[in-house]
Amino acid sequence: MILYRLANIDYIEDREGIGAKLFGGRWNEVNYPCVYASATLSLALLEKFVHAQFKEHMRNLAVLEIEILNADDIFHVDETRLQKEWISDVNYTQWIGKQLLEDSSVVAFSVPSVIVPSERNYVINTQADSFREVKFKKVSDFFTDNRLMNSLF
């Protein structure tokens, strides 16, 4: 399975989950390293865009392809079993992520995207026993239409 990580070129090579560890995210608390990725490049772009506050946040981007060889190693969070208000309850989603990130047998888990709930994002557990089997493939520069950028300050 190929996943896509979109980030500033200065941070695209973060394979230890340092950014997530320092700042936390929807599915991880601070001090829990992980790497976020998406099932499609377009979803990765939407996820990056929704967090951008300024045009500068969308410049100098690169895309990293990540391969998880055995899809059976991925735990799928069942959105039908999530609390009704999970989208607005980051403490709840971080609690779920904490349980999964503390399980060294979980190399990655998939979660519904808040932006496009029918699509999936992936949280890669850099502390998993089988993390070495995650393949970080090629890095490429990423460009998108300026019309998207023009909607930012």
Rank of each mutant, 00 (worst) to 15 (best):
M1A: 13
L3K: 01
Y4T: 07
R5Q: 08
L6W: 05
A7W: 00
N8K: 06
D10I: 02
Y11A: 12
I12V: 15
I12W: 04
D14M: 08
R15T: 13
E16Y: 06
E16I: 10
E16S: 13
E16M: 09
G17V: 09
A20D: 02
L22Q: 12
L22C: 13
F23W: 12
F23L: 13
W27P: 10
N28D: 06
V30K: 15
V30P: 03
N31F: 10
N31Y: 08
N31R: 12
Y32V: 00
Y36W: 05
A37Y: 04
S38C: 15
A39R: 03
T40N: 07
L45R: 00
L46D: 02
L46M: 15
L46Q: 07
K48E: 06
A52D: 04
Q53M: 03
K55P: 01
H57D: 15
H57C: 03
M58I: 14
R59L: 15
L61F: 07
A62C: 15
A71S: 11
A71R: 00
E79F: 10
E79Y: 10
Q83H: 12
I87R: 11
S88H: 07
S88A: 13
W95H: 13
L100M: 13
L100E: 11
L100W: 06
S104C: 04
V106L: 05
V107Y: 02
V111H: 01
P112T: 10
I115N: 06
V116L: 15
V116C: 04
P117Q: 14
V123Q: 00
V123K: 01
Q127L: 14
F131K: 04
V134K: 00
F136C: 06
K137G: 09
V139C: 10
S140F: 11
S140Q: 13
D141S: 14
F142C: 08
T144C: 14
T144Q: 05
T144D: 03
D145N: 15
N146M: 12
N146G: 06
S151A: 11
L152N: 03
L152F: 13
